[in-house]
Amino acid sequence: MELVTPGIGLIFWQTVTFLIVLFLLGKFAWKPIMKALHDRESSIENALSAAEKAKLEMQALKADNEKLLAEARLERDRILKEATEAGNSIVETAREKANEEGARMLAQAREAIENEKRAAITEVKNMAAALSVDIAERILKRELNDPRAQQALVQEYISGVTLN
């Protein structure tokens, strides 16, 4: 049974050795180990706090980016609206000028047609008067007592006259 139960001497030396190792660890190793653990804990806390700060900054930057994007969209819409209005204004102005020019040209054309018409009527009247005078002159030059001879002469002159 000696194998299962340790002897008193063995327990004593193991306890003494344990206390010596415990004293040496407490004196020389415990403080550096605790300091290393504390340093590691504080570096982890700093890293977590830096990550939280970075997360907050990213959220702020994202909000700023969204705000800038919204402003840019508004500016784009405003510029497009102004460009559309300017284009419509230019088209409307050009349309009005074209209508005015067309109306002016139409009025000029009507006036020119009216002038040509008057000139043509005047020319026809002058030709008719000249023709009448010519016929009367020819009739008077000839002495015609006979009405049939007068009628034949008039028919001859009428058929011989061509109107331009």
Rank of each mutant, 00 (worst) to 15 (best):
A60V: 02
K35S: 08
A136S: 11
A36L: 10
N126T: 13
A112F: 01
A103K: 13
V91N: 10
D39K: 03
A129W: 15
A94G: 08
E75F: 09
N65P: 00
L80K: 06
R104V: 06
V133H: 12
A129E: 15
L69V: 04
A128M: 14
D77V: 02
I90R: 11
H38P: 00
A36C: 03
T122S: 11
D64C: 01
R110C: 05
N115H: 15
A98I: 13
K53C: 02
I135Y: 13
E137V: 14
E114K: 07
R95C: 03
N46S: 02
M127N: 14
L48R: 01
K117I: 05
E111P: 06
N88D: 11
A72L: 03
E45M: 02
L69Y: 09
I121K: 10
M34N: 10
N99R: 14
K67C: 04
K81S: 10
I121D: 02
T84M: 12
A120V: 06
K35R: 08
S132I: 10
I113C: 03
D77F: 08
L69M: 05
A136T: 04
S132L: 13
R110G: 08
A119N: 12
E71H: 06
E116S: 07
E114P: 04
E92Y: 09
E71V: 03
E96I: 14
L37Q: 08
A119K: 15
A50C: 01
H38F: 11
Q59A: 07
T122I: 10
R76C: 06
N115R: 15
I90F: 09
I79S: 04
A136L: 11
Q108N: 13
M127G: 10
L56M: 02
D77I: 01
A107K: 11
M34K: 14
D64L: 00
M127K: 15
R40K: 09
I139E: 03
A36Q: 09
A60K: 02
